[in-house]
Amino acid sequence: MKTKEQIPLIKADHAIPFVDLLGQMDIDVYPFLRKAGLPEDMLQTQHQYIPKSALQQLLSLLVEKMGLAHFSVFTWRLCRDVYIPHFIRQLNNPQTVEEALIQVIEAINADTTQTRLSLRTVLGKTWFVRERGKANADWFILAEHFSVIFIIELVRALTTANWSPKEIAFQSNLSLEHSKLLLLKNTQLYSARSVTACSIERPILTRPLPPSFTAAQTIKQPATINNFTESLILALTPYLTMGRLPITQASNILDMSVRSLQRRLAEEGQTYSAVMEQALQQQALAMLADPSIPITRIALSLGYSCTAHFSRAFKKQHGASPRQWRKNIIA
Rank of each mutant, 00 (worst) to 15 (best):
K4T: 11
L9R: 01
I16Y: 05
I16D: 03
P17W: 05
F18H: 08
V19G: 05
L21S: 06
L22E: 11
L22K: 04
Q24K: 13
Q24F: 11
Q24M: 12
M25W: 13
D28C: 07
P31N: 10
P31F: 15
F32M: 13
L33V: 00
R34T: 12
E40W: 07
E40C: 03
E40L: 06
M42V: 07
L43V: 10
Q46Y: 12
H47G: 06
K52F: 11
A54C: 08
Q56P: 07
Q57A: 14
L58S: 03
L61G: 07
V63L: 13
V63R: 11
K65R: 14
K65L: 12
K65D: 14
K65H: 15
C79P: 00
V82Q: 07
F87D: 08
F87E: 07
Q90M: 03
Q90P: 00
L91P: 03
P94M: 07
V104I: 08
A107Y: 07
A107I: 04
I108P: 09
N109K: 00
T112K: 03
T113I: 09
R116H: 14
L119F: 04
T121N: 06
L123H: 14
G124T: 06
F128R: 00
F128I: 02
F128C: 00
V129M: 06
R130E: 14
E131G: 00
R132M: 10
R132Q: 12
K134Y: 12
A135I: 08
D138N: 07
D138M: 11
S147L: 07
I149P: 03
F150P: 00
V155H: 02
L158F: 01
T159G: 09
W163N: 02
I168N: 09
A169S: 09
F170S: 08
F170Y: 14
N173T: 14
L174Y: 04
L174R: 01
L176Q: 13
L176I: 10
L176F: 12
E177Q: 15
K180H: 11
N186D: 13
L189N: 05
S191W: 14
C198D: 05
C198H: 01
P203T: 12
P203Y: 11
I204H: 06
R207M: 15
R207I: 14
P208S: 14
L209A: 05
L209T: 01
P210G: 15
P211R: 09
P211C: 07
A215P: 06
A216M: 10
N226P: 00
F228S: 01
I233K: 01
P238L: 12
T241E: 14
M242Y: 08
S251G: 07
L254V: 08
D255R: 09
S257E: 12
R259F: 15
R259A: 15
R263H: 13
R264G: 12
E268D: 02
A274T: 06
Q278Y: 02
Q278H: 00
L280S: 10
L288Q: 04
D290K: 04
D290S: 03
I293E: 06
R297A: 15
R297N: 13
I298D: 04
L300K: 06
Y304T: 05
H309S: 15
R312N: 15
K315E: 15
H318T: 04
P322G: 04
R326V: 13
K327S: 13
I329A: 10
I330L: 13
